[in-house]
Design a protein around this nucleic acid. Structure first.
Length: 568
RNA sequence: UGGGGCGUCGUCAAGCGGUAAGACACAGGUCUUUGGAACCUGCAUUCGGAGGUUCGAAUCCUCCCGCCCCAGCCA
């Protein structure tokens, strides 16, 4: 059962009640029903965690079912990607991998039954005429002149639709319900349309394809789903869902329950918009590390554990909400902090020469792999006379509260020595600082101070002759506004794309120990953040993606300092 | 002017007639060889609003206000 500490969501409360009253013989069965027309994103992860989580908590089962009723939009590329993503997230559907298209023959038979019962008819109005007959939100619709066709004629026409005798749009099969209903979904909804198109699974076998409402309700029923969880926008489809099952007097009747889909700040989530980002080249593909897709998050370095934790924490309710992306990042950091091995990497190198360090000496110093996990052990890091430190760790004129390196000041090199800056070398023409001359204190090997003196700053570094050159891709949020759905006055989300969402650093220097890291490897670069080896890496030439920064107290201080400065 | 939903802290979210959990964010502090992590403290006299019922209401009733979804032969 679910955790006692966290209260249960309204869906689990419904299931508790169903179990208490003995509904469904105590069986709990859910399904995750993606349409294979795009890649899964973090919003789908919420649904996946919900559906598979319910099955796990109630000792039930969750099926994976592809809702592949529209061959115009679907593709096997997507079904493969979806399977990979669900597995990667940590869920397993066993052998229960289903496709709505597997049920086409049975769905057809159900449609015939509706015709025989007088509950469906073939309509030969044009799409435009159907729209005109539908009425509006405030005015009732009008019945189609074809509504009272005889059962024989309907049967004949429907069979000929199946046989491919008509062009697209010539006829549709409609449920005969109520053209005056306040719920537009009940105004004789279309249940089959002609599509002379090959389907990615059934090939050229079918000329007609069922619509979502019909196929979904019956697929749920066929699989014996007990609780059919979907998002809010299907709320007013529920009467139709129930109508199909009631009218066809099916042996079981799943219960549709709707919850609010996930919205994340600074993120677009609709498949349509994500597709646009991909197709119009704003990102490099569905798995671009800036994308909120599962494959993008994976490539970025997210862990499935962090995503699952996030989904647990956001809860499930019917209120439409905008979740702060900071929560997702928090979950990630919490997970990575525990498990990511630490390394030193200098992203923007600044050369440091230790004047009093022997010319040819190299020492192998001990470094802790993960302070959160003693079992991770230690490693050796080479130290020599010429080093690199981070450019931002030196300031010629340090602002107050800056306690990193500056002329005359002493800092610690992590696991190394205490050094003091004695000279600054600059480029004569640009004035840019190109090198620092420092002295080191031989008594402070490892970073200890035998005399007990305190140094406020500890910097990461890398030995110049030993360092490995690497490319690091720095990501920022893709969008500049919290809620890109607030498209005002003809502005689209594309107007809010951040020009700084990707910055590539090509001459970074990392510890030599990272030379053999394989793609997907996650680590922390001390003081800089968490990073993940990208598939674009070549042997000896690694490429890293910045997964997420560390919490940066200094950045906040500096920000408030500049605010103060501009105010004065 | 139709139908269906939703309104509790900046953001999520518990609460189900007995006197507002928790998380993130934010602000302070302790500690620290990552300005990381960890730890401590603070953060809704009030639940969209107004009436009403009750000894007692975020929870029940009435009215009002606001927001979201629906007029695909998409899902």
């Amino acid at each position: 059962m679910g955790e006692s500490a966290t209260s249960r969501d309204f869906i689990r409360m419904i299931i508790d009640e169903d179990l208490r009253t003995g509904k469904n013989d105590g069986r709990v069965m859910t399904r995750f029903p993606p349409e294979p027309n795009g890649y899964l994103h973090i919003g789908h992860a919420k649904s996946i965690c919900l559906n598979f989580g319910i099955a796990r908590d109630y000792a039930g089962l969750c099926n994976l079912r592809f809702d592949d009723t529209n061959p115009a939009k679907e593709d096997v590329e997507y079904v493969d990607a979806i399977k990979e993503d669900v597995h990667w997230l940590g869920f397993d559907w066993g052998d229960r991998e289903y496709f709505a298209s597997d049920y086409f023959e049975r769905l057809y038979a159900f449609a015939v039954q509706l015709i025989r019962q007088g509950n469906a008819y073939v309509d030969s109005l044009t799409p435009e005429e159907i729209r005109e007959h539908r009425g509006t939100l405030t005015e009732p619709g009008r019945e189609s002149p074809y509504r009272e066709r005889s059962m024989e004629e309907n049967l004949d026409l429907f069979e000929r639709m199946r046989n491919g005798e008509f062009e697209d749009g010539a006829h549709v099969l409609r449920a005969k319900i109520d053209m005056t209903s306040g719920n537009i979904n009940m105004r004789d909804p279309t249940i089959y349309r002609i599509r002379r198109l090959d389907h990615h699974r059934t090939g050229n076998k079918w000329f007609i394809y069922p619509m979502y409402d019909f196929a979904h309700a019956l697929s749920d029923m066929i699989e014996g789903i007990t609780h059919s969880v979907c998002t809010l926008e299907f709320e007013d489809h529920r009467p139709l869902y129930d109508w199909f099952l009631d009218t066809l007097r099916t042996p079981c009747h799943p219960q549709q329950i709707e919850f609010a889909r996930l919205n994340l700040s600074y993120t677009v989530m609709s498949k349509r918009k994500l597709l646009q980002l991909v197709e119009e080249g704003f990102v490099r593909g569905w798995d671009d590390p800036r994308m909120p897709t599962i494959s993008g998050l994976r490539r970025r370095g997210y862990t499935p554990e962090a995503i699952r934790d996030f989904c647990d924490r956001i809860g499930v309710a019917k209120k439409e909400s905008l979740v702060d992306v900071a929560l997702l990042e928090h979950c990630l950091r919490e997970d990575l902090n525990r498990r990511a091995p630490r390394f030193m990497a200098v992203l923007n190198p600044l050369k440091v020469v230790l004047l009093n360090y022997p010319e040819d000496q190299v020492e192998m110093l001990d470094a802790i792999n993960n302070p959160e996990d003693p079992s991770a052990g230690t490693r050796k890091v080479p130290f020599s006379r010429v080093l690199y430190i981070e450019q931002e760790d030196f300031r010629e004129n340090p602002p107050k509260q800056f306690f990193r390196l500056s002329p005359g000041r002493e800092v610690r090199l992590r696991y190394g020595y205490l050094i003091t800056c004695v000279d600054v070398v600059k480029d004569k023409t640009t004035g840019e600082v190109t090198e620092l001359r420092c002295t080191y204190d031989p008594a402070t090997r490892g970073g200890d101070t035998p005399d007990g003196r305190r140094v406020k700053g500890t910097l990461h570094w890398v030995s110049a002759p030993h360092a490995l050159e690497a490319e690091v891709r720095m990501y920022e949020r893709l969008l500049t506004v919290e809620d890109p759905s607030e498209e005002t006055a003809g502005r689209s989300f594309k107007d809010f794309l951040s020009p700084e969402s990707l910055k590539v650093l090509t001459h970074c220097r990392v510890e030599p120990g990272l030379a053999d890291a394989v793609p997907g490897t996650r680590c922390q670069f001390e003081r800089m953040g968490y990073f993940c080896v990208d598939p674009d890496s070549a042997p000896g030439k690694p490429v890293f993606n910045r997964t997420v920064t560390l919490r940066d107290t200094w950045a906040k201080i500096e920000k408030s300092l500049t605010r103060e400065g501009t105010r004065n």
